[in-house]
Write a protein that binds this DNA or RNA. Structure first.
Lengths: 236, 236
DNA sequence: CCTACCGATCGGTAGG
DNA sequence: CCTACCGATCGGTAGG
């Protein structure tokens, strides 16, 4: 019974939507899909940080995004995939920014200083993302967990190599490189748990202090190098 | 209409229960209340660590304890109070153990060493409790949050005083005592996120390494003192 | 992108 | 300590 006058108030399953709402209003979506995707990501980070992943309902998420719960399934296959995509993109950003930052720097002391800068910058500017990245590995399926874990290992490996190079060159001293790596990472990451833009210190100052701590921890001599200026970005 | 033959298969609202179950079996509880309380606490810690507080349902909790969901309300007034009692008892244990450990120790270097020992001992032996203690402050009501926050401040203050005393005595060197305190705490607490009893190092070895890191971070000279033997307890 | 719905489960309470 | 229940909400799907 499909006639030529059939009314189809909805269209196109892939992103180009024209929907008819309960209130009778016609809703034109157009290219809003990409915007929704960004808003969805930001709302997801915020809600997971506040409630935990399991406790974040898709209804909360849908409301923040301005969409019905069922419609979220146009953006992911299920809740678990949404978490994985979120966590993967965070760690990918972290690794990418680090490699970009370290490119061309040779001296282990300079590389260590750059690592501290980059790690603190990222962990203060994107603290909610860091928080869920450290917290919600527990909510990943085993396969997804392994994948994220492996990306984190890549990141940690960069620091481990820096320390090893520095030790072999005689700049650093520590009994166990693996433990030193974990100690430094935890120390630096900790900033993200208490940092507030309105706090006592600017990010630049904090970076200077943590560079000092890190070099002290590794019993580094004369660690004040040429070109040790600190670069940073203020939070938005 | 209460006759002398009235059958009351349940009794005593406070802890001395004799219940009649669906299967017709008579269940005598007697003094089991205290056991249940301990099991409840342990199950709560485990489930909150695994799922997050909001996502831990009282049905999960009841099943682990071997009780019906409604019966949990004999042990707390509501879910929020349960969380608060749990977190408060954890931080109380931490502070109590620390003060006991530090009692009678005078030299700031010895006190710092003892602090590192105690913090790592607690954070490896009770890692799930530490995890929820750091994670689920977000799920507390504002009043409860303030109360826990204040207990944590007491704990952190002990380390801050140790550092200040050491700096004034000329043993330690750092640009900012507040930041140094936070850096050391995060570094030590980090052990709880990756420590496994089957790992490469024993707790004793880890403590030695972290003492070294901590003294290095504070640029301490000749930190190997007499009586610097490391004490510890192995996990159960 | 929406409506309408599925079976399951939620924190909490009444009453015994 | 139990049974039985409250209204609300869950992740996900069908169909358009």
């Amino acid at each position: 019974m499909v006639g030529i006058f059939q009314f189809k108030p909805y269209t196109c399953p892939s992103k180009g939507w024209v929907g008819l709402r309960t209130d009778g209003q016609l809703r034109t979506i157009g290219s809003k899909g990409e915007t929704t995707e960004r808003v969805l990501r930001e709302a997801g980070v915020r809600l997971i940080a506040r409630h935990g992943f399991e406790a974040m309902s898709l209804r909360m998420l849908a409301k923040e995004v301005g969409v019905q719960a069922g419609s979220l399934y146009n953006y992911f296959d299920n809740k678990q995939d949404f978490l994985f995509d979120l966590l993967a993109s965070i760690i990918r950003d972290l690794v990418d920014e680090l490699l970009e930052k370290l490119a061309g720097i040779e001296d282990p002391r300079d590389r260590l200083r750059a690592f501290v800068q980059e790690h603190i910058n990222f962990h203060t500017l994107r603290k909610e993302e860091v928080f869920i990245g450290n917290m919600e590995l527990r909510s990943l399926s085993p396969a997804h967990h392994r994948e994220i874990r492996s990306m984190r290992d890549d990141y940690e490996k960069v620091l481990e190599d820096i320390i090893r190079d520095g030790v072999e060159a005689g700049y650093f001293k520590c009994a166990d490189i693996g433990t030193a790596k974990l100690a430094i990472l935890a120390m630096l990451t900790g900033v993200s748990t208490w940092y507030r833009p309105s706090g006592r210190h600017t990010i630049v100052t904090l970076i200077e202090q943590y560079v000092e701590f890190t070099f002290g921890l590794l019993h580094a001599q004369d660690h004040v190098q040429e070109g040790s200026r600190v670069s940073h970005r203020e939070p938005s």
